[in-house]
Simulated scan of single mutants.
Amino acid sequence: MKPTKKTRRVDHSERLIAAPLPDVFAAFTSTSMLARWLPPEGATGTFDHCDLRAGGGFRLRLTFDDAQVETKGDDDSDIVEVHIPTLDDGRLIVWEVEFESDDPRFSGTMAMHWYLSRKGGGTLVTIDAHQVPPGISAKDHLEGLNSSLANLAAVVEG
């Protein structure tokens, strides 16, 4: 009998945003806008470097207000290094995300696929996070994805 390879899960979320697709896409290519919407509720984000183009990437420190939040990095923060292999003219954005952590539960590269499509006068934003490290709770991750999407809506709709 062949050994089975354990696959990592895919987390999924989506939101219809009442803004035109070019405005939503701009929120992925502006450092100031990304800093406003990407950190989930209860966190702030600081970029060490940021190059929001295909082939570029960013290093982001997420600092959490609640000291009880389990972080992957140091005492109160998560640090992620993100490579952007795909930035497809407002339709698809791919981020390859690596968490800085000595904990093997957070090792590996998570691929976040952001799909943008026109729908009902707005933009449907769909995210599929592939190969989510097992140390990230599915419940917490979904809450974080939904929070970021709500923040994105607030930034581009307002």
Rank of each mutant, 00 (worst) to 15 (best):
S30P: 03
E70T: 13
D75K: 11
T7E: 09
S77N: 05
P39K: 03
T46I: 12
D11G: 10
A67R: 14
E14I: 01
M33S: 09
D48H: 09
E70R: 09
D76T: 07
F47R: 01
A54N: 13
A18S: 13
L52E: 14
F47G: 10
P40D: 04
Q68K: 10
T7C: 00
A54T: 04
D74T: 11
D11W: 01
D76Q: 04
E70C: 03
T46R: 15
A67H: 14
A35C: 03
V24K: 04
F64W: 12
Q68H: 14
A54Y: 09
D23R: 13
S13N: 06
M33R: 14
D66V: 02
I17L: 08
L60C: 04
Q68P: 00
S77Y: 01
P20Y: 06
A26E: 12
D65F: 02
S32P: 05
A26G: 08
F25R: 03
P39I: 11
D66H: 00
R9C: 04
A19S: 13
P20F: 00
T31P: 08
R15M: 05
F28R: 01
G42I: 01
D51N: 15
V69C: 06
A54P: 15
W37N: 12
L52M: 12
S77V: 07
L62D: 03
K6I: 15
V10M: 02
R8Y: 05
S77L: 07
P20W: 07
T63C: 11
I17R: 07
G73S: 11
A43Q: 12
T7N: 07
E41C: 14
C50S: 10
W37F: 12
T7K: 08
K6F: 01
G56R: 11
D23W: 00
S13I: 00
T71R: 10
A18G: 11
E14G: 06
D23V: 11
P40W: 00
P40C: 08
G42R: 01
L34Y: 10
